[in-house]
């Protein structure tokens, strides 16, 4: 594995290897001295064209716990604002000897383009409305540690699927790992042409009693002004997860959210803060999974 651009590129064995490696990394994160010498002398660049404090610090923590040198490159106030192209930025990073570039970009496919222009590894940390592979991996890791398995698990992904890179990466990875996925949301926020590998249901209440995992997606309020749905209140009534709906889920079922949450929109505080919610665990697991990805991409396994 040279790059991590899409979860579609991961076969089951590779995905499981990442999750198993992440479990080993988690034990490091539990120690008092949370550091391994594995990537000493290697340079990891965090190239962020979008503000995303949580993802950036997660990758930064992961790289630092593996003793890599970390360079943070934020598009704000940089050469990018002066009009530098992605290709020129790529060459600059190349010239500085970046072994891995972690890229977050508002344009779908930007990491694929970058991979043509650098010799190091490229990690997609979220590209436009395309994919967010490490989020899907940390979600799978979280499901596996909570539920003990992924094969045969019924996962409902609820909300703005159309614009969600988290949903895309999760659908692909969960299919590979044998889970059954149902997409739930208003028809306006579901792509018009879906592959047949997923179920589709516009009725959240019909799906909840059969779900082992309910993954709520962030819904941007701006979608309302684009007529994807009439109002935030109507959205919450039809697709928001509140206490009453939580109680209709099987007792073993868990609630996930990639964050940041819109409390009161797609999820109520009662649900977000309940013991059934894995939201904080997901953040913790994110560091371990990203450590595993960096480790495996930078040849740590060989």
């Amino acid at each position: 594995m040279k790059h991590l651009l899409s979860t579609a590129d991961l076969d089951a064995a590779t995905a499981i290897e990442i999750l198993d490696t992440a479990a080993e990394m988690a034990s490091v994160s539990g120690r008092e001295i949370k550091k391994l010498p594995t990537l000493r002398g290697r340079t990891v660049v965090n190239l962020f064209y979008e503000d995303s404090t949580r993802t950036r610090i997660s990758f930064e923590a992961a790289a630092k716990r593996l003793s890599a040198d970390v360079i943070n490159f934020s598009a704000k106030g940089s050469s990018v604002e002066k009009g530098e192209s992605l290709k020129d930025t790529a060459w600059t990073l190349q010239a500085m000897g970046a072994d891995a570039v972690v890229i977050r970009h508002p344009a779908s496919g930007a990491p694929h383009r970058l991979a043509n222009w650098v010799t190091g590894s490229v990690l997609n940390a979220g590209d436009g409305t395309h994919e967010h592979p490490t989020q899907a991996l940390l979600d799978a890791y979280t499901m596996r540690s909570r539920m003990g398995r992924l094969d045969g698990l019924h996962v409902a992904i609820v909300g703005d699927v159309l614009h969600s890179r988290v949903a895309r990466s999760n659908v692909l990875l969960l299919n590979t790992l044998g889970a059954k996925v149902t997409l739930v949301g208003p028809p306006t926020l579901i792509p018009t042409d879906l592959n047949t590998s997923v179920q589709l249901n516009y009725d959240l209440d019909a799906v909840l009693p059969q779900a082992d995992v309910v993954m709520m997606l962030r819904v941007q309020r701006e979608r309302m002004t684009d007529s994807y749905f009439p109002s935030a209140r109507e959205y919450s009534r039809r697709y928001g997860l509140d206490g009453a709906r939580l109680r209709r889920m099987p007792s073993h079922a868990i609630v996930m959210h990639p964050g940041p949450m819109n409390r009161g929109m797609e999820i109520t505080p009662e649900v977000a803060d309940s013991p059934r919610s894995t939201i904080v665990e997901q953040v913790t697991n994110g560091v371990s999974v990203r450590m595993a990805c960096l480790y495996l991409l930078l040849g740590g396994a060989r």
């Binding site: 496919g109 409305t129 395309h130 895309r168 792509p191 018009t192 879906l194 592959n195």
Partner: peptide, 8 residues
């Protein structure tokens, strides 16, 4: 289906 997959 391709635009759905590519997020474009």
């Amino acid at each position: 289906d391709v635009s759905a997959k590519l997020g474009l």
